[in-house]
């Protein structure tokens, strides 16, 4: 099931921040991880990911740097900044409250069931 773009617009940045919370990652790696770890629900292509990354970078939540990979080729890796970490904490709290509310009115279990 494809997620509405409005929902995706709110969830995408939080998902990317969360992935970068563990370690720094490059673009393709993020696309791959989002698709694999959300069973395709939060899958996004380059056309969505890179504008999203540039927005987060412009806001100072993440920062990117070209680094040489093991293959010897350069990749741009993104990492979470202190501001980004705080932002992630805020958004996580908000998502938890939202999820709680959705659960209360019976939306979340149904959605969780579909996702499962």
């Amino acid at each position: 099931m494809r997620i509405e773009s409005d929902l995706m617009r709110g969830a995408g940045p939080t998902a990317v921040l969360k992935l970068l919370d563990h370690r720094h990652m490059y673009g393709y790696e993020l696309v791959d991880a989002l698709a694999a770890r959300t069973d395709g629900v939060l899958a996004m292509g380059q056309s969505t990911l890179y504008p999203l990354l540039y927005n987060l970078e412009a806001k100072g939540f993440i920062e990117g740097a070209w680094e040489k990979a093991e293959s010897g080729r350069e990749r741009k890796y993104y990492r979470l900044t202190a501001t980004g970490r705080k932002r992630l904490a805020d958004e996580t709290a908000q998502w938890q409250r939202l999820a709680g509310a959705m659960k209360e009115i019976g939306v979340l279990p149904l959605l969780a069931g579909v996702m499962a």
């Binding site: 292509g45 380059q46 056309s47 890179y50 504008p51 990354l53 927005n55 970078e57 412009a58």
Partner: peptide, 20 residues
């Protein structure tokens, strides 16, 4: 094929980059 429309992608990138 999975890349999307050049014009739209370029516009989104431009908008995001300009913010930086």
């Amino acid at each position: 094929q999975g890349f999307g429309t050049v014009r739209i992608v370029a516009r989104l990138i431009r908008r995001a980059k300009k913010r930086a």
